[in-house]
């Protein structure tokens, strides 16, 4: 069978490359019986649309941010607990744990998709136009976020004015002051040169930004047991490979940002004060897996 796999990242992006490597290996391992056509750069629609296509079976597979899935399965919001992971290596270990994998079990019933395993994008950082010396300086700032609940609650707890904004609008908005700060990862700050219009880069690592490999539950149900095993295993392997890429590259990207001549600060969870506790209160109810995930994270440190 020829499978269709959709994602939002452009062709040169790590996720897209992993998707193509998955396709190549699947076609080799199955002796040409299966193949994968990759549809990058949201050719088949944004993540919400792709998830809906997975549900109807129009799309077979996708690599997708956990943020999108957490809009339907709030328990997945647990991954966005501030300082669940201290850095990208810790985040990778958490995403590879049985606890994390166990959280995928309900996806077929609750979202109509089978989750095979996790990958990642980088950790979240804060880039600001003005000086930020304490968390109090973030209060009242117009701060660009990707629109999903866990991150909204985090910045609300800090007293910032979180402003949802699609990625393409961010550069201009930062350049001309429509937003005072942005929530971003070091890869995109480098690639899209957001630092050109900012003064302060807070390497805060306050949140991880996981990805998940998905197969349509409808399509999955129609596969033979042998195919189910082979496909899930291979997809999990290639999704997982993105973790290695980010572990290797994130220090390079961070290092490059120390050389752009802007105020560069490393901060940890103490910097954010009681905002983290506030977040925890809100999400304790919404995400039942949160305590167990925290415990796993502590064990893995």
């Amino acid at each position: 069978k020829e499978f269709r796999l959709g994602l939002i990242t452009p062709p040169p992006h790590t996720w897209t490359k992993a998707a193509e490597a998955f396709g190549a290996e699947l076609s080799e391992k199955s002796g040409g019986a299966h193949s994968v056509s990759v549809f990058p750069a949201r050719q088949l629609g944004n993540e919400a649309q792709m998830l809906q296509q997975l549900q109807t079976g129009a799309l077979d597979m996708a690599f997708m941010t956990v943020a999108e899935v957490s809009n339907r399965v709030p328990n997945m919001g647990a991954f966005y607990a501030p300082y669940l992971a201290k850095d990208i290596n810790h985040a990778s270990a958490i995403l590879r744990s049985d606890t994390a994998r166990g959280m995928l079990a309900v996806l077929p019933q609750e979202a109509g998709v089978v989750g095979v395993g996790y990958g990642s994008a980088g950790m979240r950082q804060i880039l600001s136009r003005g000086a930020v010396n304490s968390a109090a300086d973030l209060s009242g700032l117009k701060l660009r976020i990707t629109p999903f609940d866990p991150i909204l609650d985090f910045y609300n707890a800090l007293g910032a004015a979180p402003t949802p904004m699609p990625l393409p609008a961010v550069y201009d908005a930062l350049a001309n002051g429509q937003v005072d700060a942005i929530d971003m990862d070091v890869e995109l700050i480098n690639v899209l040169k957001y630092h050109e219009h900012a003064d302060t880069l807070l390497i805060s690592n306050h949140m991880m930004f996981p990805m998940v490999g998905l197969i349509s539950a409808r399509v999955y149900a129609g596969l033979s047991d042998a195919d189910k095993a082979m496909i899930s295993e291979l997809m999990a392997k290639h999704v997982d490979s993105t973790l290695d890429v980010y572990m290797a590259k994130e220090p390079e990207w961070t290092d490059a940002l120390t050389k752009v001549g802007k105020t560069f600060k490393r901060v940890d969870q103490d910097f954010f004060g009681d905002a983290i506790a506030q977040w925890e209160t809100i999400w304790a109810d919404k995400a039942p897996s949160l305590p167990e995930l925290r415990k796993t994270a502590a064990d893995l440190q």
Binding site: P166, L167, Y171, V191
Partner: peptide
């Protein structure tokens, strides 16, 4: 250009 910028991941201002 806005839409092309989205697809090509380029800064819209440029």
């Amino acid at each position: 250009f806005v839409i092309y910028g989205v697809l090509a991941q380029l800064p819209i201002g440029d």
